[in-house]
Structures are given as C-alpha cells and as structure tokens.
Design a protein around this nucleic acid. Structure first.
Lengths: 228, 228
DNA sequence: TCATTCAGTAAACAGCCGTTCTCTCACTTT
DNA sequence: AAAGTGAGAGAACGGCTGTTTACTGAATGA
C-alpha cells in the first residue's frame, strides 16, 4: 500500500534493530568489550560482513545502545518531575518509577550500569554525556523551587547529581534483586519457582524501603541546607 | 640466610603476584570478561600453561584481585572512622582520604568500579560481599552515636549504605578526572603537560567540592532524621 | 524499461584464543 | 645421597575471531 519512505530503508532499519536487540541480549551475561561481532550476527541470522552496513565496530553499536537505553529513561524522569505533590509523594513516585522501569527494561538498565565504568571509552563518554543531560533536567526542575530559597546554581546542580546518582544506584540494586533464571536456581535449592519469586520480590521490597529512606535523608538535608 | 618458608613457595607467590599485577594493568583499558589468559602470561613473560598453576581461570584471578583491591580500602575506612572530630572535619577527612586513595591505587579503584556491575558473576559477588563488610563496619561505627539517638539497626545500615555508595561514586568520579596520558592528549590540543595537569587538578577540586557538599546534605538529613 | 544503488551473501585470510600434553630440572624431603 | 615434588617450558590441537574480497539480486529512480 503506502510506501512509507522506501521498502529498502525499512528493511535496513529492521536488521539494524535486530542487531541492537541481539547485542543487548548477549550483553546481559558479558561486557561490551568481550562481545564479538560474529556472536551478534550469528544470533540475528545474518552474515558477519553485514554488520558493517550498520556499525563501524562494536563500540559504535554500544553508543547506539546508550541512546536507545537512555532515551526511554528520559520519559520516566519527566513523568516524575511533572508531579507537583509533596516531598513524601515525590519520593514514593520516584522509587516506584525506578522499580517499574527496571522491570520493564532490565537489559537496558543492566547495560547502562555495566558500561558506565566499562572498558569501552566511547560508550563511557556517551553514558556520561547522557547522564549529564539528566542532571541538567533535574537541576532545572529543582531550580524553580530552590532558587527562591537562595540556592546557588552550583548547589542546585550538586543536589541534582546526588539524586541522579542515587537513582542509578537504586536501579542497579533492583537488578541484582531480580536475578535471571540461573541465579534463582542457585539461590533456592528447591525447584519451586513460586518460592523464588517470593524471595525476589521480598528483596525488591527491602531495596525500595532503603531507597525511600535514603531519599528522605537527602530531602531532609535539602530542607535544612540554608542553615549553613 | 633465613629460609623464609621455602625458596620454592616464595618464587611461586612472586609469579602469582606478577600475574595479578599484569592483569590489573591490562584491566585499565578493558573489562575482565575480555581479558585473555595469554595476554596476561605474555606480559609477565611466562608460558600460558603456567597460568593454571595459580588460577583456575580468569574469574578466579578476578576474585583474587577483588581481595587485593578492597583489602587496602579497609585500612582507609578504619582511618576515617577513627577520627572523633566534628561533622565538618569528618567530611573533609573522608573526601581527602578518598582522593588520596584514588591517587595511590588508581588501578585498584578502577577495577572495582568497573567490575562491580561487570560481566563476571563470581567477581560481582565477591565485590558485593566485600562492600557489604564495609557497610557493616561503617554501620558499627555509627551505631555508637546513633543508637543513643533512637535509631533502629535497619536505619543505621541504610545510612551506612548511603555513605559507602557515595564513597564509591566519588572515587569513580575522581578517576575520570585524572585521565591517563592518551586522554590528556585528547583533552588539550596543546602539547603542554603542565596545562593538562592544571586542568586535571581543577576537575579534581570541583569533584571534591561537590562530594563535600553532598556529604553535608546527608549529614544534615541525618541530624534531622528523628523529626519524622 | 533500463541502468543504478546497495543490503546482505559466501568464502577465504591470517591471527589469536584456551586447553592439554609431555618434559625438564631446581628445590625439598627422607 | 637418593627419591620425590611441582613450577614452569614448549609444542601442538581445534576452534573462534575481525576483516576483506567479489558476488547476487531486489528495490530504486530516470
């Protein structure tokens, strides 16, 4: 029917996405610097040479994955910042949003946590740049409220960094609480999948409670900042 | 003179340490999951098969590196906790100690930051276990002061986790501010090494100032915790 | 309709990988 | 002094790696 923008480009982007998906899947159990080109193309079912039609090398694919992973995070952040409730509701909303996001995109979150300090420089820099943009967003949202209270721009940014780092930290903690099937088999000697689920969600609840308390600490510190 | 405990075992441990050192050096520019056995033995100047006399595989070497890296950190933590000064002095001491430690053992710190969420499960677990012991130590040190103020054990541990995570975060940030020679060449187009040093130490000072402010936020939050 | 473009194929390349042998020979124990 | 031990050497193995080459054939645009 309607030739969207060319059957050819559509097929190309489809393969490109398949490469990204395969890469992300393989990266759940290894680091980017050990991910092989042939490994990815094999999983997609495509010739190794086809890889070069889409990415220069693995670092290039990694940078593309960073944009994909952190693009979806931007949506989440904006939703949290949009809430104009009180402190306690904002804390609740933040932790819930992080938990939901980790559940929805575990591979993306794992990739970011893993490669943030990983062995591939261009990817590290891409993550740092994108997280920096997050800090800017959070800082801008805080500025409306805090500038009136006499906060300097640097202090607002400092606080925003603390929040963003804490969110990344919390997301990584949630990931370890929701382990993959093999780790579940290790943890519970029994073969009861329901027991594993219960153990995992209990760990998740504990992490959420810790994260909320930590955010409360930071929130209290923010309220009393001017007394210094 | 004195036969320590056998010339043979001494030589073996010497080679073992050489393997660990070579591994740590190579890990500055890649992740553990991509580090090759031959790569390490080649740098040491030893046959590939000799590796197996000391480690089962690369993950085994990684776990050994975790103990080496976090053993030296224990010393640092204890030194900070020993200080019985006021809040501001403790904050200053903490950030200074972290900065000094990153300068003294950059490769160790980089390894921990990189492999904490890296692709090798046994290493991840070893780091998590060791960091957990840190949290215990910090929590025990806080307990003396905070239990009297009516803090629960869980809340003390929550606060200790926040501190430890913030220290790891800060250490990782310092690392990025003190880049290796190649990155310095990228950053400053000139060939003036002094200019690069100045830029690096300026970035370091900025990170230290941010870390101090963040610790102040947390400290203020801790002081007003009971009001909830 | 015909020439062009280009995503993906298939094969071949040199090179590195982890692992397994057998061997040597300096140290250790008796 | 003799027997035993064990760290390391050296070579060989099959298998996997990234990259390049020449190619096919379907979607494209004139």
């Amino acid at each position: 029917m309607s030739h969207t923008v060319g059957v050819r480009q559509a097929q190309k982007q489809k393969t490109r996405q398949a490469l990204l998906d395969a890469g992300l899947r393989l990266l759940e159990e290894q680091s980017l610097s050990s991910l092989g080109l042939r490994e990815v193309t094999r999983l997609v079912g495509v010739a190794p040479a086809a890889f070069y039609r889409h990415f220069r090398d693995m670092a290039d694919l990694g940078v593309a994955l960073v944009e994909e992973a952190l693009g979806s995070l931007h949506v989440m952040i904006r939703a949290i910042l949009a809430e104009q409730n009180g402190d306690e509701e904002r804390i609740e909303g933040t932790v819930d949003a992080v938990a939901r996001h980790v559940r929805a995109y575990p591979a993306h979150v794992r990739f970011i946590a893993r490669e943030r300090h990983g062995g591939v420089r261009p990817v590290r820099e891409a993550i740092a740049a994108e997280l920096g943009r997050f800090v800017d967003e959070v800082a801008a949202a805080f500025a409306l409220q805090l500038e009136a209270d006499g906060w300097s721009a640097e202090d607002i940014r400092m606080l925003a960094e603390l929040y963003v780092d804490h969110m990344v930290m919390t997301a990584a903690a949630f990931l370890e609480a929701a382990p993959d099937r093999s780790a579940v088999a290790d943890a519970s000697a029994s073969e009861d999948p329901a027991a594993a689920d219960r153990a995992a969600s209990a760990a998740e609840a504990r992490i959420a409670a810790t994260a909320r308390s930590q955010l409360r600490i930071i929130s209290l510190g923010r309220q009393h900042w001017r007394d210094a």
